[in-house]
Nucleic acid binder design. Structure first.
Length: 169
DNA sequence: GCCAACGTTGGC
DNA sequence: GCCAACGTTGGC
């Protein structure tokens, strides 16, 4: 596995994540167009803690379309900026407005991600569920609502395999 | 549209 | 600190 310079230290191994997004809000096509975006709007403490403590520059991200047809991992992204204040919390016009977030000690954080690849064909939830190597994958668990989820290296490789991904990691 | 699972809020 | 009520997520 490749080593990468991260907040965890120069020799830390790269980690992998699954980020959910409703394509009606922000899709892999949007990221392919923008090339890079801030991942705003995480409003769950467990997900926030992952962003703050564990998500690092260089980490791999499976881009998952939720509330969609098809439900699928549709591509991959790479973390390109570590956690910083989600300023949308202070924007009254934002759907993510949360006035309880103190500018001096922000409650909510976000990272930036950059586009890596849109899969030639989405790896559907059904395809994930049919893959024995993914039997423990968090996103497949009933009631798994976490929008930022850890993915193991084996799961990462299995999903890229199902996708026929050409991305090198 | 339904509803199970989950997280948060707030009364006590 | 408990827990019932409520709101949201998100698959089906």
């Amino acid at each position: 596995m490749a080593a990468t310079r991260t907040r965890r230290g120069a020799t830390a191994s790269r980690r992998y994540w699954l980020f959910k997004s409703e394509p009606a809000v922000y899709s892999i096509d949007d990221l392919a167009r923008d090339r890079r975006t801030c991942w705003e709007g995480v409003r769950n403490y467990q997900a926030r803690n992952l962003l703050r403590d564990d998500v690092a520059v260089g980490d791999g991200v499976l881009f998952y379309h939720s509330n969609a047809d098809p439900l699928a991992v549709v591509g991959i992204a790479r973390v390109c900026r570590a956690a910083y204040a989600d300023h949308h919390a202070w924007d009254p016009s934002s759907p993510y407005f949360d006035p309880r977030s103190d500018p001096g000690a922000p409650t909510w954080l976000m990272v930036d991600v950059e586009f890596v690849e849109r899969f030639a064909a989405p790896v559907t939830r059904a395809a994930l569920a049919a893959e024995p190597a993914l039997r423990d994958m968090l996103v497949l668990r009933r009631g798994a609502r976490l929008s930022v989820q850890p993915v193991t290296a084996d799961e990462w490789r299995a999903v890229l395999g199902l996708a026929g991904s050409r991305a090198r990691w």
